[in-house]
Structures are given as structure tokens and as C-alpha cells.
């Protein structure tokens, strides 16, 4: 795997992010306001709450060729809808087993808690996740392509 990543210097991973409207999407906005730079790898899809993220979305993202999927919501206890992020956490922890089963490295999937005031943290999460996916190389298990 590492060879694969190393071989293609110019290869840029494609990451799909599902971000909740109230905390994480706002955190991503704040990273912008604060002009914090991070890799251009992520494409964010806004949802109202991380609890909206259906496991189907994650699988579908990998099928469509995503190299990594990031789901981000409010910190535990801070959910705008009281407990949506807890539902997300519970569902998506199981997701990891499912990914393992399908042969996708579960570390291509990550959940994070980013609040509306954590622009810096948001940028760090994206940067670190991008680094990790770069090491793993292109995801080909579900996309069926060659990366």
C-alpha cells in the first residue's frame, strides 16, 4: 500500500465530508474566516445533523471512487438536535466493521467532532486525514477502478 502511495507523487486523494450545519460546517467556515490553509482534497456535503448520515452514503461514496470519508458533527453533548451526534456515533462505529467486511480499510473512514469555534481543529482534521489517506493510496476495492 505504501508503495502505491509513494509511487504517485502527484496523486491527490478525494475525500467526501458530511458536515453538520450547526457545528462542523460552521467550523469549516471559521477556518476560512481565519484564513487557515488546508489541503484541497475535501468536498463537503452539508447535512443538517450528523445523525442524518445514513451508512448507505458512506458505502456509496467509496463506490463512486472516494478515497476517504469524513463525517463530522457537534461535540458530544452539544448537538443542536439534542442527540443526533450520538446516533451518528453509534451507527458509524458499526460502519467500521462493515467496511472491514467489504475489504475497505476502515481507517479510510473517520468521524470527528468539530465545533463552530474550532476552525483550527477543522483544518487539522482535514490535514491529518489527507496525510493518512495519502499513505493508504487510492481506494479501489469498492470503486472498481484503478484509482
Amino acid at each position: 500500500m505504501e508503495d502505491e502511495g509513494g509511487a504517485k507523487e502527484s496523486w491527490e486523494p478525494k475525500i467526501i465530508g458530511f458536515f453538520c450545519n450547526w457545528c462542523s460546517y460552521a467550523g469549516a467556515d471559521l477556518a476560512g474566516t481565519s484564513r487557515i490553509q488546508y489541503p484541497t482534497t475535501i468536498r463537503i456535503i452539508k447535512v443538517m445533523c450528523s445523525g442524518r448520515v445514513n451508512p448507505q452514503f458512506v458505502l456509496k461514496a467509496f463506490q463512486e471512487g472516494a478515497d476517504g470519508v469524513l463525517v463530522s458533527g457537534c461535540h458530544p453533548g452539544d448537538c443542536h438536535y439534542i442527540e443526533g451526534n450520538y446516533h451518528a456515533r453509534r451507527k458509524l462505529t458499526l460502519m467500521e466493521d462493515l467496511l472491514e467486511f467489504t475489504g475497505v480499510d476502515p481507517s479510510r473512514f473517520q468521524m470527528s467532532w468539530v465545533s463552530a469555534s474550532e476552525g483550527q481543529k477543522f483544518a487539522e482534521v482535514v490535514t491529518e486525514f489527507t496525510e493518512r489517506i495519502k499513505k493508504l493510496g487510492p481506494q479501489t476495492k469498492l470503486s472498481g477502478g484503478e484509482g
Binding site: M48, C49, G51, R52, V53, N54, K91
Partner: peptide, 22 residues
Amino acid sequence: KGCGACSGACPSGSARQMGYRD
């Protein structure tokens, strides 16, 4: 309140969050 938790959980895709449909 439109959080979409039901759509996130629904196994049959029948709970539709308007504006954020599957």
C-alpha cells in the same frame, strides 16, 4: 425540526428529509 435523524436511520428509505433527500 428537520434534523433528519429518521432518514439517517430508516432502513427502507421511506423517511425523507425534505431538502436533504437521499
